Deep mutational scan, measured.
Amino acid sequence: KLATQLLVDLAEGCHTHHFNSLLDIIEKVMARSLSPPPELEERDVAAYSASLEDVKTAVLGLLVILQTKLYTLPASHATRVYEMLVSHIQLHYKHSYTLPIASSIRLQAFDFLLLLRADSLHRLGLPNKDGVVRFSPYCVCDYMEPERGSEKKTSGPLSPPTGPPGPAPAGPAVRLGSVPYSLLFRVLLQCLKQESDWKVLKLVLGRLPESLRYKVLIFTSPCSVDQLCSALCSMLSGPKTLERLRGAPEGFSRTDLHLAVVPVLTALISYHNYLDKTKQREMVYCLEQGLIHRCASQCVVALSICSVEMPDIIIKALPVLVVKLTHISATASMAVPLLEFLSTLARLPHLYRNFAAEQYASVFAISLPYTNPSKFNQYIVCLAHHVIAMWFIRCRLPFRKDFVPFITKGLRSNVLLSFDDTPEKDSFRARSTSLNERPKSLRIARPPKQGLNNSPPVKEFKESSAAEAFRCRSISVSEHVVRSRIQTSLTSASLGSADENSVAQADDSLKN
């Protein structure tokens, strides 16, 4: 292990032709098999893994070397290190390495390699500790012929580059190093199909959405987006994914797998022009299946994007999809995704031109529960009313008269009656009930004795009459309010007539 670390330190600071010789020695160290011998017992696995620490030291050392060589000349050094790393990870899946030390190597290698970024000039870069990406002036992410390196360097940008540029090249004859992302992409596909350690798979799935944002990485080298989509959909639809995973937390289920895969599918929607129609349908189907899991909100957001990006695919699945959405409970976490999906859909009339009455009724059935102001915040309630109004205007004229009683009944049950079921009123009724029952229970537990009763009969009569009056008032709060309003209006009217009579009498006395 110490000798391997010494080789790594020497290679990191070497800029001459001896660098390749040092890498040859490190490569021989990495070539050791990580498969346990067949006769190895389970209690000896930890000791055997400790004997392979030099392999881990070599791989982690290459990660440090690549981070240094990416910004220094010659660029061919970075290319050689990158290829060695990718080849080593491929061996893991070729020979099915399952030892804990092998999983640790893959975890740290993917953690580093999935941080690679590219700008519009195809320059590769890595983020620093502050998250700012520094791009290399010597390494690009696409394949290029050595003699055409300078031509590639002087080509115009596709868009303004992001991030601070690296140091300027030493001279005009500098050759750019090619670090094609397709090599890593193929290893990522192998990981999605064969990885057995949940920690490694979770890391890859968590980092892929951010990497897919940099389309330069994908399009400048032959990366098959179709295969990526197929691998992701197979993970969700195939039963073998959960069987092969180990190291998963207790209670791990298909729902947890959906939570990890759906963000990658959402990021892949922007590549729909490069996906086969069959793959697009598979993607939409997987998102529909996710509606029954805890990732339902993410799936609804993804389907909203699909309705804009892939209208030809979503239009066929939309009638059944809208009916499925009615089975989702009206909760605060689902309110905004569902209502925004319906609001977006209302502005795309070509998608729902074939809707029948059942689909329009489903839209109103989804939106009406969110009009309850005692359960949802003001934004959700306003958005629900907006969706109902928009869809009522957009639905066909023959359907409107049939939906009017349905909508008014839903609004009455969710908006008007919600004020009668407020917690304050319920607590008031509970308190009044307890007050009504309390005197009775006290009389049963403690019967009054005439000799020891010091309270006069008049006081008892007053208290009983007050309790009886309170019971009468607490029967119905709404009736009490109505009666008080009527009494107030009658009182004001009587006072007004009394004032008029007094004024008339005063005038008569003055005349006399």
Rank of each mutant, 00 (worst) to 15 (best):
residue 65 I to L: 15
residue 120 S to A: 12
residue 193 K to T: 14
residue 222 P to K: 06
residue 58 A to G: 06
residue 143 Y to W: 12
residue 124 L to Q: 02
residue 219 F to T: 14
residue 94 K to G: 05
residue 206 G to Q: 11
residue 99 L to E: 04
residue 105 I to G: 00
residue 60 L to N: 15
residue 250 E to W: 06
residue 185 F to E: 02
residue 222 P to L: 02
residue 165 P to K: 15
residue 154 T to V: 11
residue 82 Y to H: 02
residue 88 H to G: 01
residue 123 R to M: 03
residue 200 V to Y: 00
residue 79 T to I: 12
residue 132 V to H: 09
residue 74 P to E: 03
residue 134 R to H: 06
residue 49 S to T: 08
residue 247 G to Y: 09
residue 69 K to F: 00
residue 239 P to K: 09
residue 200 V to M: 01
residue 235 M to I: 10
residue 180 P to K: 05
residue 139 C to K: 02
residue 176 L to V: 13
residue 70 L to T: 02
residue 100 P to F: 01
residue 242 L to R: 05
residue 69 K to R: 05
residue 157 P to R: 09
residue 227 Q to P: 02
residue 53 E to I: 06
residue 188 L to N: 00
residue 133 V to N: 05
residue 227 Q to R: 06
residue 67 Q to C: 04
residue 155 S to M: 13
residue 213 R to N: 08
residue 120 S to Q: 08
residue 96 S to P: 06
residue 50 A to Y: 07
residue 96 S to F: 10
residue 82 Y to T: 02
residue 134 R to Y: 06
residue 250 E to C: 08
residue 227 Q to S: 08
residue 141 C to L: 04
residue 90 Q to L: 09
residue 151 E to H: 13
residue 83 E to L: 07
residue 182 S to M: 05
residue 142 D to Y: 04
residue 184 L to T: 08
residue 137 P to E: 06
residue 115 L to R: 14
residue 158 L to K: 13
residue 68 T to P: 01
residue 53 E to S: 09
residue 234 S to I: 06
residue 65 I to S: 02
residue 182 S to Y: 08
residue 118 A to P: 08
residue 83 E to N: 09
residue 156 G to H: 10
residue 224 S to T: 04
residue 49 S to Y: 05
residue 233 C to T: 11
residue 205 L to F: 02
residue 101 I to R: 01
residue 228 L to E: 01
residue 90 Q to I: 07
residue 220 T to C: 04
residue 198 W to V: 03
residue 68 T to G: 07
residue 131 G to C: 04
residue 242 L to C: 09
residue 129 K to H: 10
residue 193 K to N: 09
residue 214 Y to N: 11
residue 100 P to Y: 02
residue 242 L to A: 08
residue 212 L to R: 00
residue 83 E to I: 06
residue 100 P to R: 04
residue 96 S to I: 05
residue 135 F to R: 03
residue 249 P to Q: 08
residue 233 C to G: 03
residue 147 E to K: 12
residue 52 L to W: 04
residue 94 K to P: 01
residue 74 P to S: 03
residue 87 S to Q: 11
residue 212 L to V: 02
residue 162 T to V: 13
residue 223 C to F: 02
residue 219 F to Y: 09
residue 238 G to D: 14
residue 71 Y to V: 02
residue 82 Y to V: 04
residue 218 I to L: 08
residue 147 E to W: 09
residue 251 G to S: 06
residue 237 S to Y: 05
residue 232 L to N: 00
residue 231 A to W: 01
residue 105 I to N: 00
residue 198 W to I: 01
residue 238 G to E: 12
residue 140 V to L: 08
residue 237 S to R: 10
residue 104 S to G: 10
residue 98 T to S: 11
residue 156 G to D: 09
residue 183 L to K: 10
residue 191 C to L: 01
residue 85 L to D: 01
residue 137 P to T: 11
residue 182 S to D: 04
residue 149 G to Q: 12
residue 50 A to C: 10
residue 160 P to E: 10
residue 231 A to L: 10
residue 234 S to E: 10
residue 67 Q to W: 02
residue 155 S to Q: 13
residue 127 P to V: 07
residue 144 M to S: 09
residue 91 L to K: 11
residue 70 L to I: 08
residue 251 G to K: 07
residue 220 T to G: 06
residue 62 L to G: 03
residue 221 S to W: 01
residue 232 L to W: 00
residue 79 T to V: 10
residue 93 Y to V: 00
residue 131 G to K: 06
residue 205 L to W: 00
residue 85 L to C: 06
residue 218 I to D: 02
residue 128 N to C: 09
residue 76 S to I: 09
residue 215 K to Y: 03
residue 150 S to Y: 09
residue 137 P to R: 13
residue 134 R to A: 08
residue 188 L to V: 08
residue 173 A to S: 15
residue 162 T to E: 13
residue 196 S to D: 12
residue 142 D to F: 02
residue 138 Y to T: 08
residue 147 E to I: 12
residue 138 Y to C: 06
residue 252 F to G: 02
residue 199 K to A: 13
residue 99 L to Y: 03
residue 198 W to T: 01
residue 178 S to T: 08
residue 181 Y to Q: 02
residue 115 L to K: 13
residue 103 S to C: 08
residue 207 R to D: 01
residue 238 G to F: 06
residue 220 T to D: 02
residue 138 Y to G: 04
residue 84 M to P: 00
residue 248 A to C: 12
residue 56 K to S: 08
residue 216 V to Y: 04
residue 92 H to W: 00
residue 52 L to G: 05
residue 177 G to H: 15
residue 179 V to F: 09
residue 208 L to I: 04
residue 58 A to H: 00
residue 236 L to F: 06
residue 154 T to G: 12
residue 70 L to S: 02
residue 93 Y to F: 02
residue 229 C to D: 00
residue 98 T to D: 13
residue 245 L to A: 02
residue 106 R to M: 01
residue 53 E to K: 04
residue 196 S to P: 06
residue 136 S to M: 01
residue 176 L to A: 13
residue 151 E to K: 12
residue 100 P to N: 05
residue 236 L to Q: 01
residue 82 Y to E: 01
residue 141 C to T: 06
residue 103 S to V: 09
residue 235 M to E: 01
residue 217 L to W: 04
residue 121 L to Y: 11
residue 206 G to T: 11
residue 68 T to H: 14
residue 67 Q to L: 02
residue 102 A to F: 02
residue 94 K to L: 07
residue 95 H to Q: 11
residue 189 L to R: 01
residue 179 V to W: 04
residue 63 L to P: 09
residue 222 P to F: 03
